[in-house]
Design a protein around this nucleic acid. Structure first.
Length: 884
RNA sequence: AGGCGCGUAGCUCAGGGGUAGAGCGCUACCUUGACACGGUAGAGGUCGGCGGUUCGAAACCGCCCGCGCCUACCA
């Protein structure tokens, strides 16, 4: 016998281990089944499970389990990402804690240390994904720095270099002075900062006492100025164009140039040009052949290129010093408060410096073109569709991708330099040496480029590198292109776009047919979860408290397309209650012999309730299937929740009770089989969302063909939908609800059993009442029920009258009834119907409505009016009889 | 500045040209042999505002207001 409540912890561990050991998660490359492949977005190896992971992997697991049950050969390819910067920072921090440092260890020692860290701590996240129930094929788990994947990276780099897509260039990059590395545009986080706008007077050479005012938010950069620009049409400064200004504090002669970049409306209209430390200024300098003066070292401290007093100062100290000196020199015109955005490193959290360095770039524009086309013509579609415009917007304006990083942890760039700086890009040192020997005509010593690649470079290859590329493996042929990618919108640019580009370039096909973009999980007030706000909800805590199924159902039920999820713990609790409800429904079935050993043919059900049940289950299966196929996860969850609770438990099992304990043995037997069948179908349909509780119940009730994880998905389209049975049960629900409502409003004690008279009963009502007497009595708490086609000649004293269809239900309540309450109730009902009739009359009185609305809509309104009027007449009559 | 999304019950949200929905919360009653993590019945809404299209708009279109996010720029 099942316990009174479901206890998830023990069940989850047991079933997960069984599933994994039984090979249920395994793909079958040799099978004849149609493949279905999902590439898991590899979580950072440093990661631990957060709500975003929980949502992302729940949705993937729902799809994987659904398609597996539908008979597809599912490969859900798992793995982790080496996460260059993040991992290097983690290991550096732990080194620092023990008094060591990266530089003290040296490169080889440090990398070894990171691998040791990975061996010890790198499986945290995958262990946690298992807790969630993720049914990935863990045998195939990959890591972006595995040898195979690393070989793929080298091959891609070399090929793209030979194709001219990858090249080396000296230009401004976003430099992170804390991490000491370049980063890509995407890793820049703009933050609004309250700062100042300093207006500085630059004296003009040859014009005694004249100066040109410039305005800046970064006064320290003036030390690197090499020009002042004004707009060519700006009357105020036209006379100064071609002259020179004398840079205060430095004394350098710098030209005053005309350039449309200078906006007369902004600042003073004259803009200082610091080409080595500003992206716009760099372009201006290029147009005017201005010199570049690099005033920062890699730590963003001032170099020897600035006057003596400032050398070696940190950029923030330098600012104070420069402002003070300008003021002392009388060159500071004014200072205004100004809010402006400042670029910060998303990992380091410090302001970035545009800095001139040699880096490796990928010509993303070239790679983007086929990737754009693939989405334009629908080879890859985004769900929801509006994300396609986000993708297009970025891809069509894509900038060169800086792919080198000055780190130690990552894929070292396969480029070697000869003694004269000639570069040899090859997949191995031996090949590079050979190429160099050919180039120089002799063997030379080569130096390898110390940089590593952007982490996203290797994840861009994930859809094919994990399948064995560049080898032509069976898996690659079978599972690429993959079916659906499930991910968050925050990495469309970082990852999705780059996989599209690399997939098109190297495989000739887009890596997925569908990209399903889900929302962000926020706290219950809509705030982004963050450590600093302290509003993080830990999925593992929720799993422990409510079970993985409850968390999964919550996330799935709230995963409406295109909307963020505001998660409150109360929601998880509510869905945990659903798991308990399901559990108890199964317990009821078990206690009443509604078990699968009782045969039932759903196509041949005899009893009305069972025919109704079959129709309901069939529709549920269709709805759930449709919803999952179209990624409407929330609708699938909603349909399942509603059917199980409000159809199966609230009505079916209640109506089944008198049958199960009744005298009709055949009816009881059929109902036992029907309940068991329906519960079995429900367990199948719920399994992708709630794998643990369904698997447990499936086993505990003795269903055959387990485990459920590999059981076939219900296909019930062939089953009958008996409209007459549906109408009949709807009538029962109306009948019972009407009586309950009256009882409640008149404060009839729930325990009181009533003697009911149904008068004016038509043929259908008489037949239905006769067939469902026991159920009606139980559900409406009746002692006796008398049904007559006639109208009662006299009303029993103190009788309540309610209307169901054509019949009037007369409930004698002489001892119990509160006559005033009953009068008020009737008046209220009549009033309600009156307003409804009024509404319909306004429509029917509109000749345009009659002329132009579809006939069935008009007819429907007429019927509704007639019905309302009939009910109202009966209630009026009842009110009259009550008085008498 | 541009783009995208959102505004529906106290809260969190579905829905979507013809009866206004769910969960939670709230109120009353009920420990009835599956379930109090439960049952029954209820209260609660001019669907952000203004126009337009339509026989009919909460839904479609336009504008406005408010909120959120993304991208770009900011001397």
């Amino acid at each position: 016998m099942l316990d009174k409540t479901f206890r998830p912890a023990e069940v989850e561990a047991r079933h997960y281990a069984l599933w994994e050991a039984s090979g249920a998660f395994d793909c079958h490359p040799d099978s004849n089944a149609e493949p279905f492949c999902i590439m898991m977005p590899p979580p950072n190896v440093t990661g631990s499970l957060h709500m975003g992971h929980a949502l992302n992997h729940t949705l993937q697991d729902v799809l994987a389990r659904f398609e597996r049950m539908r008979g597809r050969d599912v490969l859900w390819q798992p793995g982790t990402d080496h996460a260059g910067i993040a991992t290097q920072m983690v290991v550096e921090r732990s080194l620092a804690a023990e008094g060591g440092s990266r530089t003290a260890l040296g490169r080889a020692g440090f990398v070894e240390r990171v691998w040791a860290w990975k061996a010890e701590s790198g499986s945290t996240i995958t262990r946690q994904l298992r807790r969630l129930g993720a049914s990935a094929d863990w045998r195939r788990e990959r890591f972006t720095m595995d040898e195979g994947l690393s070989a793929a990276v080298r091959k891609v780099f070399v090929r793209l270099h030979k194709d001219g897509v990858i090249y080396r260039d000296k230009r401004l990059v976003n430099w992170d002075p804390k991490l000491q590395t370049a980063i890509s545009d995407l890793e820049v986080e703009q933050r609004e900062i309250k700062g100042h706008l300093w207006h500085i007077a630059y004296p003009v050479e040859g014009l005694e006492g004249a100066s040109i005012p410039v305005a800046t938010t970064r006064p320290e950069t003036m030390l690197g100025d090499t020009a002042v620009a004004v707009h060519p049409d700006d009357e105020r400064y036209r006379a100064l164009i071609g002259r020179h200004a004398i840079l205060p504090l430095v004394g350098r002669r710098i030209p005053i140039v005309a350039d449309p970049y200078a906006d007369p409306e902004t600042g003073s209209g004259a803009v200082k040009i610091t080409p080595a430390h500003d992206f716009n200024d760099f372009e201006v300098a290029r147009r005017h052949s201005l010199p570049l003066i690099n005033i920062f070292d890699p730590h963003a401290r001032l170099t020897d290129a600035v006057p003596q007093p400032y050398r070696g100062l940190d950029r923030f100290e330098a600012r104070q010093r420069v402002v003070a000196d300008l003021e002392a020199a009388g060159a500071l015109l004014k200072v205004e408060d100004q809010t402006h955005s400042v670029p910060f490193g998303d990992r380091s959290g410090v302001p970035l410096e545009p800095w001139l360095t040699d880096q490796w770039y990928a010509d993303a524009k070239r790679l983007a073109a086929p990737a754009i086309a693939a989405v334009e013509d629908g080879r890859t579609r985004f769900v929801p569709k509006q994300w396609e415009s986000t993708y297009f917007e970025w891809m069509r304006n894509i900038q060169p991708w800086c792919i080198s990083r000055q780190l130690w942890w990552g894929h070292q760039i396969p480029a070697w330099y000869g003694p004269d700086g000639a570069v040899f890009v090859e997949e191995s040192e031996a090949e590079a040496s050979a190429a160099a020997a050919r180039h120089y005509g002799r063997t030379v010593a080569l130096t390898r480029d110390p940089d590593v690649l952007d982490t996203w470079f290797s994840s861009a290859l994930w859809p094919f590198s994990t399948l064995g590329w560049p080898d032509r493996t069976k898996e690659l042929a079978r599972y690429y292109p993959t079916d659906v990618l499930v991910t968050g919108f925050d990495i469309i640019f970082f990852w999705v776009a780059r996989m599209m580009m690399m997939g098109m370039h190297f495989m000739g096909k887009a890596p997925f047919h569908t990209v399903y973009i889900h929302a962000l999980v926020r706290d219950e007030f809509g705030q982004k979860m963050s450590k600093s706000k302290g509003n993080i909800i830990d999925p593992l805590v929720l799993i422990e408290k409510y079970g993985a199924d409850a968390l999964r159902l919550t996330l799935v039920a709230m995963a409406a397309q295109g909307r963020d999820i505001k998660l409150a713990e109360a929601r998880v609790e509510g869905y945990r209650n659903f798991a308990t409800k399901l559990w108890n429904a199964a317990r009821f079935c078990q206690m009443n012999g509604c078990t699968p050993d009782h045969p039932f043919d759903p196509a041949e059900a005899g009893l009305t309730i069972n025919r109704w049940l079959v129709a309901g289950v069939r529709r549920l299966a269709e709805d759930a299937t449709d919803a999952l196929v179209t990624f409407r996860f929330n609708e699938a969850a909603g349909a399942l929740y509603h059917f199980v609770w409000h159809s199966f438990c609230d009505w079916y099992l209640e109506m089944a009770k008198p049958v199960l304990s009744g005298d009709d043995k055949a009816a009881a037997e059929e109902t036992r089989g029907a309940a068991a069948w329906a519960l079995g179908q429900i367990l199948h349909l719920l399994h992708p969302v709630m794998p643990f509780v369904t698997e447990e119940l499936f086993g505990a009730l003795g269903y055959a063909g387990g485990p459920l994880i590999t059981a076939p998905w219900p296909r019930l389209q062939h089953l009958p939908v008996d409209d007459a049975a549906v109408d009949e049960i709807d009538w029962i629900i109306r009948f019972v609800s009407t009586i309950r409502s009256a009882r409640s409003e008149l404060n009839v004690p729930p325990s009181a059993e009533l003697d009911l008279i149904v008068e004016n009963a038509g043929a259908a009502t008489q037949r239905r009442a006769a067939r469902h007497g026991p159920a009606l009595s139980l559900l409406a708490r009746l002692k006796t029920m008398e049904v007559t086609a006639d109208k009662l000649p006299t009303m029993p004293k103190g009788a309540v009258q309610v209307v169901v269809d054509e019949a009037t239900l007369v409930i004698p309540l002489a001892e119990i009834i509160d006559l005033d309450a009953e009068r008020r109730r009737l008046a209220r009902e009549i009033e309600k119907l009156e307003s409804e009739i009024g509404k319909i009359d306004r429509k029917l009185g509109n000749s345009d409505f009659l002329a132009k609305a579809p006939a069935e809509v008009v007819e429907d309104q007429r019927e509704r009016r007639a019905e309302a009027e009939r009910a109202q007449a009966k209630l009026r009559q009842a009110a009259a009889r009550l008085k008498a």
